[in-house]
């Protein structure tokens, strides 16, 4: 378990992180979402020790996170960069060794990863001859080459084509399945929704919500139901505990104050005529996000 506890940090008198606390659980992919400037990158840099916190701690397996453990982390900074004139495989091997692997292991891991992210043919090409998408793949490989014990990825999907996204998603899932805690930030909420098990929402330097997707849904949104009747649905307006979200003739989207009230509404509808559809709507992450940072 990687745990961020009560971390504060300011730059030139401006508070950027205000009492930030959240967990990244082993074996789970945690999405870190927030608007630009909300504090995602600063939090990640503090986890990696690239920046120091003014107050608060980062702990690893209930102990202080020391530099030796940090070194075993995999990090993809927001600002991408590798050596432009160095061959892709050479950089991976070099970075693997800097992270503490011996030469043989670094070479094996580099080759396996290049294969996995689809860059095996480009292994001996210099980085700056690669397309942007391929450079991104190399960047992800660079974060993974030393078999990290934890992964901290700042916007790993920005600039990736859909094919590359699939490749990276598969790689991250595989690492998580091996028990590695994975934290990644993104403002592509659809991707976060697809990929993450847990979610941490940050806004203006404060953690607004944290938990699994279903927990957050239950906590921050009311159950919604799409109703399609044979007759006009206007009467729904007058049912207590029901809020109309949309109403269009015989079709309506309603929100229930009490989740159990759905049966009451359904019975009432059936007495009034045909019910062609009665479908619970799972709110999207984007909706939860808007709700949380409101």
């Amino acid at each position: 378990m990687l745990r961020v506890e009560a971390v504060r940090r300011s730059f030139d008198g401006t508070l950027v992180l205000d009492d930030v606390s959240f967990d990244v659980a082993p074996g789970r992919i945690t999405g870190f979402v927030g608007a630009n400037g909300a504090g995602k990158t600063t939090s990640m840099r503090i986890i990696l020790g690239v920046l120091a916190a003014d107050a608060g701690t980062v702990t690893w397996k209930d102990g202080p996170l020391d530099s030796a453990t940090r070194r075993a982390f995999g990090y993809m900074p927001e600002e991408r960069g590798l050596y432009p004139k160095m061959k892709v495989r050479d950089q991976l091997v070099y970075l693997g060794r800097l992270h503490g692997l011996d030469a043989g292991a670094a070479r094996r891991n580099a080759d396996a990863l290049l294969e996995q992210v689809g860059l095996a043919e480009k292994a001996d090409a210099k980085l700056d001859t690669l397309s942007l998408g391929n450079q991104q793949r190399a960047q992800i490989a660079a974060a993974l080459v030393h078999d990290p014990v934890a992964l901290i990825l700042d916007e790993p999907f920005s600039g990736l084509d859909p094919l590359a996204v699939d490749v990276i998603v598969a790689v991250l899932r595989e690492r998580a399945a091996d028990g590695v805690p994975v934290l990644f930030s993104s403002h592509q909420l659809d991707l976060v929704e697809r990929l993450c098990d847990d979610l941490v929402v940050i806004a203006a330097g404060q953690i607004r919500a944290a938990g699994s997707g279903s927990e957050l849904r239950a906590k921050y949104t009311l159950p919604r139901i799409e109703v399609l009747l044979g007759t006009d649905a206007g009467w729904l307006r007058d049912v207590p505990g029901v809020t109309i979200v949309e109403l269009d003739g015989d079709r309506a989207v309603i929100e229930l104050a009490d989740p159990e009230a759905d049966q009451v509404v359904l019975r009432e509808a059936m007495t009034r005529g045909p019910v062609r559809a009665f479908t619970p709507i799972v709110p999207s992450l984007a909706e939860i996000f808007r709700e949380v940072i409101r």
Partner: peptide, 17 residues
Amino acid sequence: TEEKQTRIVEILVAAVP
């Protein structure tokens, strides 16, 4: 300067003293 310009420096700093 090149390491700063290409931004690899952040990976390096996170990995080694």
